[in-house]
Design a protein around this nucleic acid. Structure first.
Lengths: 237, 237, 237, 237
DNA sequence: AATGAATGAGGGTTCATTCAT
DNA sequence: AATGAATGAACCCTCATTCAT
């Protein structure tokens, strides 16, 4: 009893739930969703198998709860980032770093849980649309949209951006980068790698359509030339 | 169509193998790798369960064969694209469209098989690196690198591109786009969506650092000036 | 009989375990290890197949448990024999009878389990040496060694016996005798047959190297001569 | 064709049969009866799976054929030994050595085949009695009986031997010795070990009940001494 | 005689979930 | 609330044997 005195004392059942989640997160990360049995989870959480199902009605539900927590954390971190940093470029960089950090943690647990969840969702003849995962994902992806839209309001980036495409590039690119970092165990250079990824995206968003100046010059000159010729012909006529 | 007409009939065993693959592809796409049993596959292929294992030594091996064939197809298509189109921008667009098409086919089978395979790889004590999947992936990702590098040789794009980051953005972005199309069953507008995704990438690769707004402003003014002149002359005429 | 009357009822799970063992022993004895399926065992024990694996982690483990129990029984019986009987010749006889009894029971289950276990051991990459079976065997064979060594200390048998060879003859001979009894269903004369087998062994252990007939003849004559002399002197007296 | 010219040409089918047996013997010895599949045997024999069954109607039949050959070899060797050696003690030694050699060969193939065969026999609800194995065994065990009986006729050993018990001791002891040698890979001292095993058996067969000569001598002397003392006392008296 | 593709009836084992205690 | 024994359907895979060619 005494050892919990200093902390906000979780109710017994809240503590149990936390224990189960901790155990599941650790084990899923270590061995993968399929390989981990509810028996192992219960054992690591220090409870009996039956009790586990008093807290989470199924193994899939446990997975869902974990995903929810991770998304919640992603959102919370994102809020802090947006609150503490005003510069849009910095915001994107930090959002990306946070995304990578959370995805890679616990032996890439998050990535693998998402994959497992997609399998479950599809296997169960459930449409992905309307699935819990989809909702979580939407509510989180919103922070990217917000950031870009605010940058647009400030005039930092172009107005005619295709937000959906940029979002796909951003999160898709980060997922691939995450796999790459995981593969090569190169997390020490994460921040730099993230920078390399965000930079081209950012460049493409800047107001100036990167046009080939020479071509623009030439185009202007051609129009002017045409105008001159027309003027001459008009004069002749 | 014509290219299949002349084919000699497959040998009995080649036909069986094709039947099994067809059945597996269909079922995996429909219900997911885990949910499909070897019994179901055998039943759909019209053979006994034992026979299946004469052709593919395990269920995982069957999955591997499917992945290999899809990667092979991706590479073949990519080769044709590179051969028939010289313009780098067009190449990227077509490579992307091909990627999406193959990924989305059969109820997003490919995407899901990759995920399933990663689970298998991670669950075993095999490192992903050095796994079959990784090799296939590498050999295919090479076509993107090649395309960009040739564009660099031609001077179409900058020399100092971060190839790895662009690759992650390209394939990662396509994967997310693919999910999105799949979700909204919006494949009719696929080509356009791909264009929206490739465009910012391409822009970021162009040699020109984004011009200052002033230059564009000036160009517009010159064009408008030319237009005014033309208008006046027209009025005279 | 009396010793079982007072026993407290087995706990539920201990009872289940006993049920499973009983079922397995019976079936293995009747049909052989390979032919008996876990399904059959579970059915006979009145449980589901899954439950069986809650008690014994594998079919092989079940076999191991049976072997262990039989060896334990052999050792226990042997201890009682050694405690209750001091005469070495009697000890050997009773040890042999006990061995035969246990080996022959349940349709020669024990003999066959050992063979099955050796197959398992050899098939796996485990060396027989160091295997569980080997340890059990060693700890039991020890009672024979002990008996002989005590006989040596008492001077009943020679000091220069080859214990290892005698042990092989003892247990090997008993195994063959057991097969023979089993074959001819001649267990009613078991005790007599065991005696015939132990006798030559015992004879070979006795201190006296076989004397030449002449020596024995001479000794008898000398004794008779002495007796005659005594008889004469007695007559004088 | 030409390559078989110099040897007594086996008919093609005889050669095939020999190939199959060779393959089976090698594989059974290496991996055990159960673990070896007919596929492996066919592959090693250089024939197709189907062909194997033209020569041996079942896998069990193949095992039976192997056992028969080994027993035949045992008998043949035994005949030679009896023909070439007249001394009974030497005969037993050589018979024993031959037995061990054949049993231990090919990774203890023979021992393991016998075990496998017993399982098959029992599993098939066949009585061991009347089984092929039993007949083979009987016809071979006959050489031991013959040897002992001839020794009895010559008067080398006692007339009242229990032949059955001695046979069990002989073959049973050899089987255990064989296991022991196999276990400790101590075949270099085989001949010596066999001697240690045969010796006590032989001793027990010798006509003279083994008595300690010294003790007999001493006893006689004591009796004589006692007689002398009595004589002296009687003389004094 | 020879082939080898096809068989198909199980084999042992797993594990999320339930429910009587 | 907590337990943990019991479930049982389903899993992937094996392999001796057959038989059309």
């Amino acid at each position: 009893m005494a050892d919990a005195l200093e902390e906000r004392p979780l109710s017994r059942s809240a503590q149990r739930e936390a224990d189960i989640l901790e155990a599941a997160i650790h084990l899923f990360g270590e061995e993968g969703f399929q390989s981990v049995t509810t028996r192992k989870i219960a054992a690591r959480a220090g409870i009996s198998e039956g009790t586990l199902f008093n807290y989470f009605s199924s193994k899939n539900e446990l997975m869902r709860a974990i995903l929810e927590r991770i998304y919640e954390e992603l959102r919370d971190n994102a809020s802090v980032i947006l609150r503490e940093h005003l510069d849009s470029r910095t915001r994107l960089q930090l959002l990306a770093e946070n995304h990578i950090e959370v995805m890679s943690r616990d032996n890439a647990l998050f990535m693998r849980m998402i994959q497992a969840y997609m399998n479950v969702d599809l296997a169960g003849y459930t449409s992905i649309r309307g699935s819990v995962l989809h909702k979580l994902n939407l509510s989180y992806a919103w922070v990217f949209d917000t950031t870009v839209q605010e940058a647009q309001r400030r005039g930092e980036v172009r107005d005619d951006l295709n937000l959906s495409a940029l979002r796909d590039l951003f999160f898709g690119g980060l997922e691939y980068l995450s796999r790459s970092l995981f593969l090569h165990e190169a997390f020490d250079r994460m921040s730099e790698r993230v920078g390399s990824l965000v930079e081209p995206l950012w460049q493409s968003m800047l107001p100036q359509a990167p046009a080939e100046p020479d071509r623009l010059e030439q185009a202007c000159e051609r129009i002017e030339a045409a105008a001159r010729r027309l003027a001459k012909q008009a004069a002749k006529a």
